[in-house]
């Protein structure tokens, strides 16, 4: 199947600042593809180039087989876009906004079934400002679907939502995906990327660090377990050094809370536990957990751990 998006050697500079630095990746038709990274990683700039809002300094981008620089109007007609924190007209109702947006497209859906799908049919005559945060985000997703697109691009769709609203939105995104729509989304929530995306691109400071399935990314890591310690009093230097013996890294999460990342379980786990007993470290809490995308991200990009 043809790739929904092909990005090759994409570079975008703003003055002397390089927002996107030689990024290449493909999005396959019919998948949910996530771009994960902290704020300022270049996710939004990458999306805006794909959407035709910005011109790249270097590189080729094609969407649905069309070149973004040469055929932007044809692309725009076939994709749906949800912008980060985009508001809508204050003085129109939800239904009127959808009708208006639909009028810009050659092909459009009826507004009411769309509102029904996102659970906002009862609010059809209300204004956007009267919606809750979760309803607002669901509405912007509905608005991105008005032209029955083959590809939707969602920029941080769940930022600022409470956990319940976030899960509702995940369900909505899965539903859209099941109808055969390719979904590209950005997020800085690891668990969101892990829960939703079939493939992930990890970006940091304008660079693409890795592209793979969430599980492959996790499997790639040297770290196999994490151990979280909560102690009544801060550990001494000596205690930290002795713990570090069998551990790849130790991070002070908060005062009295430490996170250990282990390389070779179960040997390392054994060493850590013995050290704890041997150096008479008193524990309030001990937690042994699997590796998450959070760890992947830190290992691939971060030096926070090794500072």
């Amino acid at each position: 199947m043809e790739d929904a998006i092909r990005v090759e050697g994409l570079t975008k500079r703003f003055g002397s600042f390089t927002a996107v630095d030689d990024v290449s990746f493909c999005v396959k038709s019919g998948e949910i593809f996530g771009i994960l990274g902290p704020n300022g990683a270049g996710k939004t700039t990458t999306l805006e180039i794909i959407e035709g809002l910005q011109r790249p300094n270097q590189g080729q981008v094609s969407v649905l087989g069309l070149d973004v620089l040469r055929q932007p109007a044809q692309i725009k007609a076939r994709i749906g876009v949800q912008l980060q924190s985009s508001a809508y007209y204050d003085y129109l109702s939800l239904r009127e906004i959808l009708v208006l947006l639909g009028s810009f497209y050659p092909k459009r859906l009826a507004p009411d079934p769309l509102l029904k799908q996102v659970g906002l049919l009862d609010q059809a005559t209300q204004r956007v400002k009267h919606l809750s945060g979760g309803q607002k985000q669901r509405f912007t997703v509905a608005a991105s679907l008005i032209n029955d697109p083959e590809l939707v691009i969602l920029d941080e769709p769940t930022t600022g939502l409470d956990p319940q609203a976030r899960r509702n939105l995940w369900d909505l995104i899965r539903e859209i995906h099941q109808r055969g729509v390719t979904v590209v989304l950005t997020t800085h929530y690891m668990e969101e990327a892990e829960a939703l995306c079939q493939r992930l691109a990890i970006m940091d400071r304008g660079r693409l660090v890795a592209v793979d399935t969430p599980q492959n990314l996790i499997n790639r890591l040297e770290t196999t377990y994490t151990v979280k310690l909560v102690v009544p009093a801060p550990l001494t230097e000596d205690q930290i050094i002795s713990l570090n013996g069998g551990v790849s890294s130790i991070q002070t999460v908060e005062r009295n809370t430490y996170l250990l990342r282990l390389h070779q379980a179960p040997e390392a786990l054994d060493t850590v536990l013995q050290t704890i007993v041997g150096s008479k470290i008193r524990l309030d809490h001990l937690e042994i957990g699997p590796v998450t995308l959070e760890d992947v991200f830190l290992e691939l990009t971060g030096n926070e751990l090794r500072d």
């Binding site: 809002l53 947006l101 497209y105």
Partner: peptide, 14 residues
Amino acid sequence: SQSILKRMLVTPLP
């Protein structure tokens, strides 16, 4: 400031 202009730009409306 509310990105409504940008929202217009991602539609095919000239």
